[in-house]
């Protein structure tokens, strides 16, 4: 009798507490894209996207748990439902929109081509016959392919390896998103003194958070979160923190 009474009392309490706890989102990111997302010395995932998404999720009444994923296959994982969201500097493209749902844009970038100091180029045409590297499956590679310029394009697993090969003179140029290119060319130790920004593309791209196509509800909640983050001035603060002016 006592047991039954306890159960009757405890059950609603348990149900309530689980309902009260914030919904937890599993968020995949490829932390090889500084300063948008990268690992600090203690192997924590940090970066603009991480702080931004956490703020957005908090505004939407959810919690975010970040997990590390390789870029190659990051979309396959969200399609398979291994995680709820991809927050990894994903450019919104029509091709990707066909396969996935995106939030409203949260940050705009361009593509930048980085060269070794001493080299110069003012557009893809100047790279004719040269070897250009980039990260596999990134928009930088797509832009280079679409330029139609006759050059060798090498697709690395991550942009760091491409930058390393640029330093080693195995390739002549690297293309990637502007924040990443600026980070390597101006900030990153061991790279900044040897690399230079050659040119940036005119077209801008917008980053969005990615969810599975059938999770429109989540998109709406996140969009509201982004709105709130903007209205409260958190976004401007984070941009100052991670991306400078």
């Amino acid at each position: 009798m006592l047991r039954r009474l306890l159960c009757a009392l405890l059950l609603p309490a348990l149900l309530c507490s689980s309902a009260m706890a914030a919904e937890k989102l599993v968020v995949a990111t490829n932390p090889e894209w500084p300063p948008m997302e990268f690992l600090d010395d203690n192997k924590n995932i940090i970066g603009y996207d991480v702080d931004m998404f956490k703020a957005v999720a908090a505004e939407a009444g959810m919690e975010a748990e970040f997990i590390m994923t390789a870029w190659d296959g990051i979309f396959a994982g969200v399609a398979a439902g291994n995680y709820d969201v991809v927050a990894s500097a994903v450019t919104i493209t029509p091709e990707r929109q066909k396969a996935f749902a995106f939030t409203v844009p949260y940050y705009d970038v361009q593509q930048i081509v980085v060269l070794r100091k001493g080299d110069s180029a003012s557009g893809f045409a100047d790279l004719k016959g040269k070897v250009l590297g980039g990260q596999i499956g990134t928009t930088g590679i797509f832009v280079a392919q679409k330029s139609g310029v006759d050059m060798t394009i090498r697709e690395y697993d991550n942009v760091g390896l491409a930058m390393q090969d640029l330093l080693n003179s195995r390739i002549d140029a690297v293309v990637c998103d502007s924040p990443v290119a600026l980070y390597y060319a101006n900030q990153k130790e061991g790279f900044a003194d040897q690399l230079t920004v050659a040119f940036r593309t005119e077209a801008t791209e917008s980053f969005g958070f990615v969810v599975r196509k059938d999770r429109k509800d989540l998109v709406e909640r996140l969009n509201k979160g982004i709105e709130a983050v903007r209205a409260k001035g958190i976004e401007a603060e984070l941009i100052r923190k991670w991306l400078g002016e």
């Binding site: 190659d72 296959g73 979309f75 396959a76 399609a79 091709e95 990707r96 396969a99 996935f100 590297g133 596999i136 499956g137 797509f142 090498r154 697709e155 690395y156 697993d157 390896l161 491409a162 090969d165």
Partner: peptide
Amino acid sequence: AMPDLMQFGRSFAAKSYLY
């Protein structure tokens, strides 16, 4: 980033999302 059969496949999948 050697353009072998596997790399071509990965490149295609990364572009088309047809894994």
